[in-house]
Write a protein that binds this DNA or RNA. Structure first.
Lengths: 110, 110
DNA sequence: TTTGTTTATCGTATTTATACGATAAATTTA
DNA sequence: TAAATTTATCGTATAAATACGATAAACAAA
């Protein structure tokens, strides 16, 4: 991509965009959904469930981790990834607030 | 980017990812916020408010339109962009449902 | 120690995204 | 009709994202 001029839109929108960007790929949504729905949070288990190479899954996990959506805990040779509960609720609120700004009853603008 | 294997994750996650992807850029969030907060929905007004070239803004508007987040109505030589009310509420629900799948009281998985 | 297991990272090829200037297309105005 | 206005699109340069194989790193097990 080109240089996204992220410095010009305010901190709030930049942070929100970082979250929605991390959510903007089906594989990452699938991983999150998997972590929530099942108890298999070990990296290897996730790799088995996805039609992607281990390296690719690891990259997606890294992206989710950097966005604060998940956290990883090392357990021997394996790593257990979980939803970052605190951030999850915070982000949920942020996204919900963004959508809620719009009032559907306000009528069309033009 | 590489070929995102979007064919393997189910229709729902693909559709949701398309929406969050469109929301994954601060300029586009800014545009949406602007459309909601002000009454200036004309393309030219948006260009003036953003630190981006007209062509770039037009591209972002196209992305938002293709995602179904906004709709454009031609009015003379100018175009008025508005939030797509129906889709907006639907998408809001989708995103909210996705976040709500996680129960913060369920405890850590490991 | 040696071997095996698991995950992260490196290197890299490819595709997409972002951005801009220039220009086309459509409508308004003079 | 001619000129001005507004927006979309084209062409293009650059950067980031996606994906993979190969390999390193860390730990467990033999």
């Amino acid at each position: 991509m080109g240089t996204s001029k992220t410095e010009n839109f305010g901190t709030d929108l930049n942070e929100l965009a970082a979250i929605t960007k991390a959510l903007g790929h089906p594989a990452r949504l699938f991983i999150l959904h998997h972590l929530i729905r099942t108890k298999s949070c070990v990296c290897g288990d996730i790799v088995e469930v996805l039609p992607l190479a281990q390296a690719t899954v690891s990259q997606h996990l890294k992206a989710l981790k950097e966005a604060g959506l998940i956290e990883g805990e090392i357990s021997g040779t394996s790593v257990c990834y979980c939803i970052h509960a605190e951030n999850w609720m915070k982000y949920s609120q942020w996204v919900n607030s963004f959508f809620s700004q719009f009032d559907p009853l306000s009528g069309k603008c033009c």
